[in-house]
Computed example of a mutant assay.
Amino acid sequence: MVHPKADIPVEFFDAQADYRRYVSDSLRKGKATIGSLPGVIVKSLQEQKIANWLWQHSVSFAYERQIAVEDDDGTVRHLHPDFYYPQTETVHEDFALNADGTSPFADYALHAEKKRQAYRRKEIDFFETSSPGQ
């Protein structure tokens, strides 16, 4: 599974953009169908690349491991960071953000900032990468 995989293979689409749109639509509907080498089903092609790279380099990780965080008002909510590295207790978010901080998805940039704040508030070691237009 080195290459992108979904219910309908990429070769059935007229253009790569059509395939990416299909994958994106599937994800919005809760149908994550992108496989990876370690056997983890991920939500984006970029996450697949990261999972495959981690697996190929023997890096231990958990995908979307649940973490409880407290908001400013004391409300507890659960985040699911893209990758969690248990050996260093580090969180890795791969945000679908453009270089200017915008996203093709509605309210996504605000959601990303709230996650950053929650990690800082709980003093969780984290880093982020970005993948425009996942």
Rank of each mutant, 00 (worst) to 15 (best):
V59I: 14
A6S: 11
Y22W: 05
G39I: 01
S130K: 15
A68E: 06
F105T: 09
I34C: 10
V91K: 01
A118H: 03
Y22H: 04
E70H: 03
I8V: 12
D7P: 01
G35T: 10
L110K: 13
V59A: 10
K122D: 11
A106Y: 08
R77M: 05
D72C: 08
A6H: 10
Q134R: 06
V69E: 09
T33W: 06
I67M: 11
K49E: 14
Y19N: 05
G101Y: 07
D25F: 02
K5Y: 10
D82E: 13
S60H: 07
H80K: 11
G133C: 09
H111P: 00
K114Q: 15
H111Y: 07
E113G: 06
I50T: 12
H57N: 14
G101F: 06
Q56W: 02
K122H: 07
D7L: 14
T75Y: 07
A99E: 11
L54A: 07
S131E: 05
E89S: 09
D14L: 11
G30N: 07
T88V: 12
V91C: 02
T88N: 03
G30E: 09
L27R: 12
V10F: 13
A109H: 00
Y85L: 13
T88D: 04
F126R: 02
V42H: 01
N98F: 14
K29Y: 11
A96F: 07
L37Y: 05
R20A: 04
S26T: 04
D18S: 02
I67S: 05
S44F: 06
Q134A: 10
S103A: 06
Q134C: 04
D25H: 04
G74D: 09
E64G: 00
Q56K: 13
A118T: 05
T102H: 02
P38H: 04
S44R: 01
F105Y: 15
A109C: 08
Q46F: 10
L27S: 01
V10E: 11
L54Q: 04
H80V: 06
T90Q: 12
G39R: 05
K31L: 13
R121A: 02
Y22I: 03
R116F: 03
Y84D: 06
V91Y: 02
S58P: 02
R121S: 07
R116H: 03
N98C: 08
V76C: 06
A118W: 03
S130M: 14
V59W: 14
A96Y: 02
D14Y: 08
M1E: 12
D18A: 00
E64M: 02
D107R: 13
S60R: 15
V69D: 01
S60N: 12
A96I: 15
R116Y: 00
A17T: 09
R21C: 01
A106D: 00
I124M: 03
K122E: 14
